[in-house]
């Protein structure tokens, strides 16, 4: 599967030259591309990359492979740091969870990379939030929740450095709710379970993952952040007078090391874009209802700029949360 020259390279450096030299002439890419997943196997980001990688390699020149690789750690920061420091040759690309990665910079936290410097290759998908409560809870509609001015709601998050925290905090600010964040729920499944048990009161979900829990009647949507509510009888953010909530999204974008040449960026970006529009991925999207919302590299940069402006407005809110 992998080019044989790699093995030889380790044993006799000279051999590398002999075998690899002809490949140099053919241009980028001349070896496998690593598609980094900043989380462990089994999650949403993992699923996307493992599905897209084999399709993406079909659209790349020179018949190379796109190899998914999980580099889990520090809420995705470890993979980002590794990509940031990599050789800018375009052989490593990564999927990012977008407001999540921006956050450290906005809040002035020290991390080992500058998120603005990554080269963006495109967006894979965008998910919108839906606010949900447990069906056994006291408050069963968004009006109930907003009326209860004195109540403090419990909201499970992964950590105060996570996207779930940022979205919840901003929503609480906009809707005027007092939210007490409980950190340490390591997966969205555990967040859901805490809601089912009644340990916590409310949580934001992406629309698709909530659908699974609604069928069994344990969780109930009360407010959709989409333009048109996907759930019957559930109001949208605009309908309750807070259209700005529509700007809260989860973006799955793809980036590479700072300083990768425009030419290489274009090769990668085009292959990704073509893959997302490939009938195989589109068919998968229709079958599983997982969102696929391709954006080109340029559009992704613009989108991220806008989202940075949006989140910067809430800088102080987010800071006091700690």
């Amino acid at each position: 599967m992998k080019p044989a020259y790699r093995l030889g390279a380790a044993l006799i450096a000279g051999a590398t030259l002999a075998v690899a030299a002809p490949a140099w002439a053919a241009g980028f890419p001349e070896k496998d591309i690593t598609f980094i997943i900043p989380y462990g196997p089994g999650g949403g980001f993992d699923t996307y990359v493992r599905k897209i990688a084999p399709v993406m390699q079909k659209h790349l020149p020179n018949k190379v492979n796109v190899v998914p690789k999980n580099i889990a750690g520090a809420g995705g920061n470890k993979a980002a740091a590794q990509l940031y420091r990599a050789k800018p040759d375009g052989y490593q690309i990564a999927i990012f969870n977008m407001p999540g990665m921006l956050l450290d910079k906005i809040l002035g936290r020290k991390v080992a990379f500058d998120v603005d410097k990554f080269e963006w290759l495109g967006r894979i998908a965008q998910s919108k939030y839906v606010l949900a409560v447990g069906t056994k809870g006291k408050h069963q509609s968004v009006q109930d929740l907003m009326k209860a001015k004195k109540a403090t709601f419990k909201y499970a998050i992964t950590s105060p450095a996570s996207t779930s925290y940022v979205a919840g905090k901003i929503m609480g600010d906009i809707l005027g709710m007092n939210i007490n964040f409980l950190a340490g729920y390591k997966s969205s499944a555990k967040i859901s379970l805490s809601l089912v048990r009644g340990d916590t009161d409310l949580s934001l979900f992406n629309t698709r993952s909530l659908a699974k829990w609604m069928k069994s009647g344990e969780l109930k949507p009360v407010l959709s952040f989409e333009k048109k509510s996907p759930f019957k009888g559930v109001p949208t953010a605009a309908e309750i007078g807070h259209p700005e909530l529509e700007l809260l999204t989860i973006e799955r974008v793809v980036g590479t090391t700072p300083g990768v040449s425009d030419k290489i960026q274009k090769v990668l970006s085009d292959a990704l874009f073509a893959a997302l529009n490939d009938p195989e991925i589109q068919g998968w999207h229709k079958k599983t209802k997982r969102p696929i919302d391709p954006l080109s590299g340029e559009e992704t940069k613009k989108m991220l700029q806008a989202s940075k402006v949006f989140y910067s407005k809430y800088k102080d809110t987010l800071k006091t949360g700690k």
Binding site: G73, K78, A81, S159, A161, A183, G184, K322
Partner: peptide, 15 residues
């Protein structure tokens, strides 16, 4: 990484 506080403890800069 400490999930409760969202900060990193005792790593002394070692990735």
């Amino acid at each position: 990484f400490d999930y409760v506080s969202g900060i990193v403890r005792y790593t002394y800069g070692v990735d």
